[in-house]
Design a protein around this nucleic acid. Sequence first.
DNA 1: GTTTGGCACTCCCTGGGTATGACTGCTAAG
DNA 2: CTTAGCAGTCATACCCAGGGAGTGCCAAAC
Lengths: 353, 353
Amino acid sequence: MIDKPELDKRKAFILATVVYEYINTAEPVGSVTLAQKYNLGVSSATIRNEMAELEAGGYLVQPHTSAGRVPSDAGYRTYVDRLMPPEQLTKDDTRRIRDQFREASRELGDVIEQTTRLLSGLSGNLAIAIAPSRDTHAFKHIQLIWLSARTSMVVVVTSGGVAAQRVIEWQTDVAADDLTRLSNALNSRLGGRIMQDVTAGQLDAICADSGASAEMREAVRGAFAQARQTDEPGLAASGAQNLLDQPEFHDLRKLRAILRFVEEQRTLYDLVADELASDAPHTGQPHVRIGHELGPDELSECSVVTVPYSFGDRGVGVLAILGPRRMPYARLMALASGTARSLGDHLNDVEIR
Amino acid sequence: MIDKPELDKRKAFILATVVYEYINTAEPVGSVTLAQKYNLGVSSATIRNEMAELEAGGYLVQPHTSAGRVPSDAGYRTYVDRLMPPEQLTKDDTRRIRDQFREASRELGDVIEQTTRLLSGLSGNLAIAIAPSRDTHAFKHIQLIWLSARTSMVVVVTSGGVAAQRVIEWQTDVAADDLTRLSNALNSRLGGRIMQDVTAGQLDAICADSGASAEMREAVRGAFAQARQTDEPGLAASGAQNLLDQPEFHDLRKLRAILRFVEEQRTLYDLVADELASDAPHTGQPHVRIGHELGPDELSECSVVTVPYSFGDRGVGVLAILGPRRMPYARLMALASGTARSLGDHLNDVEIR
DNA sequence: GTTTGGCACTCCCTGGGTATGACTGCTAAG
DNA sequence: CTTAGCAGTCATACCCAGGGAGTGCCAAAC
């Protein structure tokens, strides 16, 4: 681990082959296997020497003295960044993604959840999605709906198609006309504004102008607050049971730790939301984090592929795939990218204009 | 299994003790353990004889010749129906349930999900909830909201506080006034009706009376259809990872089968919805199904406690706890009942009047 | 200098054999 | 009917040796 010299061509090829083989077999790979299965043109002894140097360089580790080698975090990292042949989506995958979105819902929450189901099914791993942060959406419409003298419902529609909705109980009777007047005033003066640009002061001013009561003003404020609430993540995950199939998770203790981590909305959100908060430009490229790069110890044997998706020109969410470090990175990156693109397209098509 | 004679007092006590001990220890229980730990007043030899007869009667089984006994489905059944001392909710549980509902959401979907989290946390098992079937709710309000000349949003509010909502794209331009007029007409003529009693013919008539276009009529029909859709179950489950802690599920194959079963919304719904469909009167009493009584082979080592909850005077949903057959039935029944009651109360308190 | 074949060594895994312990069922005596 | 005692059964744990996969090193070949 001390020095990390540039890898010469043969070392790079051997490292790539070890990672590839290990991803496919889940068994530590030895020099003889490598020499036989792949056409290296050198003997196993030479490969042994190279592998020893790769281990000294921190790219490979041995589970025990007389076992083959397994990639380390750094080994996977090098593989992903520089050695791995990129993959395209297969025809079959493309079709399945297309079919899925063709009949997808128009409700943001549902779309997000369906997308995780699709992605977990295609990838055979756990899929996670974060819905776009709400306060980057444009305000479209608010409606205060009279239900009875003491109860109303307020609905806020934004460009995400997300309608924040809540029921209000009034302390004093209200008239349907007052609600309509206030709704109209808000709509005409705020239409098209970005949610996060709407200040409480503006709301108050509009309420005052249309003669709304203090109680109604509070209701409007509350509705806007809810509509752009960002700490209610809008998170979906599915496919946790896929992890059971991975041999590295046959150890119940590890599995439990991971599942507990995943069940906790908050931690899961933090895990994926790094991607949103990061200074890296949102290039739309998938991003891979491997093992300890993820942070939490529970996930030290996992990797995560994240890819941002966008719709409109502002809203940005994230798709992610969580699986064992021994995951088919190229394929999953292609899948995540393709799904993110289709999701963005779908959201754009469906967006309320 | 051939004959099932009435159990005499001592046999009943021994059976109850075996079940109790096995539930607590997860180990097959032998005659000596029983004689030592519980005050039976007879020797282990006598207990052996009794246990042999209980096995002949089908109440107990031996995992292998030289092991202790384990309850059979029939043994659990007898225990639950006749032998088990009923339990009350502990002060602590009562408090936690109360606290949970005090700050619970007003949205039906959220409440249902939060309830499963509560119940899985309290019970240490998997909790499932089915939201009330929508078409038993009373219609409260419909609003067609003008977003642009070619798009609108329609919101339907029912007594469940559930608002079905959808976005509509018109083929031809519509005017905001027309939407308001139609909304008002529908509200005044349908207010308070039970959803399932509203026919398509009535909707059409109201649309015609208020001069709505064919397209608008379709939109209204669609919104009502969505609002009372029953085949969209409104299902929540949480706590699957609790099952990992149960020793009977340390076998990965069994665990996988169960988790796959649970991940599938449809099968899970069918499992719990039996309770709704059954002819049994909804007494509010918890109902227990044990092992093979559940039907699916995957669940032959599981039991389910279900309890209906009601709100208003019609809507009925179901709470359920799924766990190993070796579950603390009395406690879980108390928990499920208490939670169902609190859930019903909460829904009543929060119901839009 | 690099590559290669050979060889000794290490360590995991497996399978057989055995001891152990927790049961039961049976029998005969109380 | 109950009980003590005893033989028998079976799962589990344990030890141990053998096999196998793989490495590291060295000396010879290229």
